[in-house]
Design a protein around this nucleic acid. Structure first.
Length: 234
DNA sequence: AGATGATCATAT
DNA sequence: ATATGATCATCT
């Protein structure tokens, strides 16, 4: 596989995106090696494939995928009716040394400031190689969406700051939830405890609820779940 | 059926 | 262990 350079402009990045639109994963992956039959053991495979195709080179460093362009890349699987099939991981939830952190300066705000969404077929009954890449699009939170995110973020961080991490469940947060994010259930990390002490707990991450990303998809594609308008996806 | 909690791969 | 990339699968 030849290396693909970083796109030097948003236009160049989007041109590469449009070249992927409507094509199958099998076609795109042909020059990258074999396509897994299931994503069970390769959960991030598609995301990494698209990163490579678009010229992202951040690797596992903690920066945006396209730093110079200020853009974060997110692939999102859609089910048979074009609804998000999974929640979207945003970033790890800080559980220590959080005094002074504000929503404005948070990782959540930064990551979601400008996102390049790459929707694709997520249905498990469709072979990975046959899945379709829909038209990618750029998104930034509307003032309303930013407020929704801020509200949830503040609520979650207030609990974390006061030693209530363990009381947070995935049911909390209207659009932004907190769930475990680790290799397995044995992974532990430090967190603020009840009396300001340090306790060990499971690492957590911020995730966007499907109802939230569904609105984003709807807006981008002007979707009203009307079969007649679905063709624009491919 | 859909959401919550758990888990999978790789690099550093 | 933490960062990146996420989806799986059990439970309600």
């Amino acid at each position: 596989m030849a290396n693909i350079s970083r796109p030097s402009s948003v236009e160049e990045l989007m041109d590469r995106c449009f070249a992927l639109a409507g094509r199958t994963v099998g076609e795109i992956a042909a020059r990258h090696g074999r396509v897994p039959s299931s994503l069970l053991h390769y959960k991030g495979w598609f995301g990494q494939l698209i990163e490579t195709e678009l010229g992202a080179d951040a690797g596992s460093t903690p920066v945006q995928d396209f730093t110079e362009l200020g853009i974060e890349l997110k692939t999102i699987p859609l089910d048979g009716e074009y609804y998000p099939q999974e929640t979207t991981f945003v970033c790890a939830a800080p559980l220590m040394n959080i005094s002074g952190i504000t929503y404005e300066g948070s990782n959540v705000r930064n990551k979601l400031a400008r996102v390049l969404w790459v929707p694709f077929t997520g249905s498990r009954d469709v072979p990975v190689a046959d899945r379709i890449i829909f038209t990618p699009f750029l998104w930034s939170p509307t003032p309303q969406e930013d407020l929704e995110l801020r509200t949830d973020w503040n609520e979650h961080m207030e609990k974390i700051a006061t030693g209530l991490v363990e009381t947070i469940t995935a049911r909390d947060g209207a659009v932004l939830q907190i769930r475990p994010k680790a290799a397995d259930g044995r992974a532990l990390t430090q967190a603020v405890g009840r009396d300001g002490t340090i306790v060990m707990t499971r690492p957590r991450g911020f995730y966007l609820r499907k109802a939230f990303t569904e609105r984003i998809i709807d807006r981008a594609y002007s979707l009203k779940r009307d079969p007649a308008t679905l063709k624009i996806l491919s």
